[in-house]
């Protein structure tokens, strides 16, 4: 049980990082399904950075920068050029696929699979001594702590600050924002870049935190799941947290059940996270908080 909880809380980290980041860009009115590609890029550069410098933290910074640049490309076309955001997202994913596979072959796998230094667990004194909870919550890697702290920080920024208010308004009624002097375009750029950075960190966590290596298909839809978590979480920070945890339980369960000898083949358990995502989208009835202008480019006249 303890192992299961540990694995759930680990699984949730990249989802949380990515969804909490994209929550802002979704609220500001853009749909970015290029998250998958951003995470993939982050995963590669995280591993590369760690491989080059020996430090996973430097790797993470490089990962964040790289996926931010990729998201900048998305933002330029989605916000300034007003191109279809969904198709642009697919393009970003395609580019990320090409880029990561190429660079992986050039730098990493040219001499066999490389294992890189991963994030080390940092046990928080005293708290980590608490039975069960201590091991599950207070013996984590730095990005994991960050992810859980970020839930509260995101909630604070989202609901208590001027910036959060502007972001919430931008996706609801961009014209109204314009009339009170808010620069919607800049807001959308900013939130997109932030979501790119967080997706990069999430990717780096997957490659250097969970597996200590990069493999080409390692994101396997988690970018989409993170995006679905925002929808399923009704676009609120704690809602996102809840849905990320549900998805993480699905993923943890998947590994758990794979290991156990169940009468159902383990490949079906592999499908579990994807099925849960679909079901979550279908039972998502409370759309009260979904931005009205989601995915619609805003062109000032």
């Amino acid at each position: 049980m303890e192992d299961f909880l540990i694995s759930v809380f680990k699984m949730a980290v990249p989802l949380l990082l990515c969804s909490l980041g994209t929550l802002f860009s979704e609220k500001a009115g853009t749909i970015n399904i290029g998250l998958e590609g951003s995470m993939l890029t982050g995963a590669l550069f995280g591993a590369l950075g760690s491989y080059w410098t020996g430090s996973p933290y430097v790797g993470a910074v490089i990962a964040m920068c790289s996926s931010m640049i990729l998201t900048l490309l998305f933002a330029f076309f989605a916000v300034t050029i007003c191109a279809s955001q969904i198709v642009m997202g697919v393009a970003i994913n395609t580019i990320a696929t090409g880029l990561t596979i190429s660079l992986n072959r050039i730098f990493l796998t040219s001499n066999g699979v490389v294992r890189v230094n991963g994030f080390k667990n940092i046990a928080i004194p005293f708290f980590s001594e608490i039975p069960v909870i201590g091991k599950v919550l207070f013996n984590q890697t730095l990005p994991a702590y960050l992810a859980y702290i970020l839930v509260f920080v995101t909630w604070f920024v989202y609901s208590k600050t001027d910036l959060g208010l502007k972001i919430r308004a931008a996706g609801e009624h961009p014209t109204a924002c314009d009339t009170v002097g808010i620069n919607v375009i800049r807001l959308r750029y900013g939130t997109l870049l932030y979501s790119g950075i967080m997706a990069g960190l999430a990717g780096a966590y997957i490659s250097t935190g969970q597996l200590s290596a990069f493999s080409e298909g390692m994101i396997s839809g988690r970018g989409f799941t993170a995006y679905a978590a925002v929808i399923f979480g009704n676009f609120t920070p704690f809602g996102v947290f809840r849905s990320c945890m549900i998805f993480a339980v699905g993923m943890g369960l998947q590994y758990r059940l794979q290991a156990m000898d169940t009468p159902i083949s383990y490949y079906f358990w592999m499908m579990l996270p994807y099925l849960i995502t679909i079901v979550a989208l279908c039972i998502y009835r409370n759309r009260s908080n979904a931005p009205k202008y989601s995915g619609i480019p805003y062109a000032k006249n």
């Binding site: 208590k160 600050t161 001027d162 910036l163 208010l165 502007k166 919430r168 308004a169 609801e172 009624h173 014209t175 109204a176 924002c177 009339t179 009170v180 002097g181 808010i182 009260s288 908080n289 009205k292």
Partner: peptide, 29 residues
């Protein structure tokens, strides 16, 4: 200006609409 199509954001509260975008706002509201 009070526009014919109101420039209020329905999903926000009245006071949030009031302070939205004001330059005198502090970072934390």
């Amino acid at each position: 200006m009070v526009h014919q199509h109101f420039m209020l954001i329905p999903a926000l509260t009245v006071i949030e609409n009031m302070v939205l975008g004001m330059e005198s706002n502090h970072a934390v509201l």
